[in-house]
């Protein structure tokens, strides 16, 4: 088979473009972290609402996961150039990089409700419901200022 040089060059260009579009590991990591939070909040929420039967072991595992994620230091997951104006596939407001200390403070503020969630999970659905409000409040505090609208 004969392959022309221009065809190879074109293929190389396409491959290069594909590499450039690849999502950086820091972005993947932070998005995975938010997904982990969301999935575990979903487990607790389902029990709080009575959609799923209360199961202390599952509830505590979910709450522990949320508290665990909240302990991660996210500073390393927000490198320069990974805001919504610079790359596709993120809703990270450029304002994050103007106010990194505030972002980190707001993230750390989620640790107390994370701990409260663990305590509530052991008690029952009613307590979980009350704790979810606190957790959601911590999420909102950051999303209001630092996530682009849908």
């Amino acid at each position: 088979m004969k392959v022309s040089i221009p065809a190879i060059a074109a293929l190389a260009l396409i491959a290069g473009a594909a590499t450039a579009q690849e999502i950086r590991p820091e972005v993947k990591a932070r998005q995975g972290q938010f997904q982990t939070l969301s999935i575990n909040l979903g487990i607790l929420g389902g029990m709080a609402r009575g959609d799923v039967a209360y199961d202390a072991v599952r509830a505590e595992a979910a709450a522990r996961s949320i508290a665990g994620v909240s302990m991660v230091d996210i500073a390393a997951l927000f490198p320069e150039g990974t805001d919504a104006m610079s790359i596709e596939g993120t809703r990270a407001e450029p304002a994050i990089w103007d106010n990194l200390p505030d972002v980190l403070t707001k993230w750390q503020a989620g640790r107390a409700p994370g701990g409260a969630g663990e305590a509530a999970a052991a008690k029952g659905p009613q307590d979980i419901g009350a704790a979810l409000g606190g957790l959601a409040g911590a999420c909102k505090a950051c999303h209001d200022a630092y996530r682009t609208p849908n």
Partner: peptide
């Protein structure tokens, strides 16, 4: 209806994302 009532109580959407903007 249960999703809406839960959202109005906790600010969590059915996908367990948090409410934004003035809805907070």
């Amino acid at each position: 209806a249960s999703d809406i009532a839960f959202y109005l109580e906790t600010g969590l959407t059915p996908a367990y994302d948090s409410a934004g903007g003035h809805m907070v």
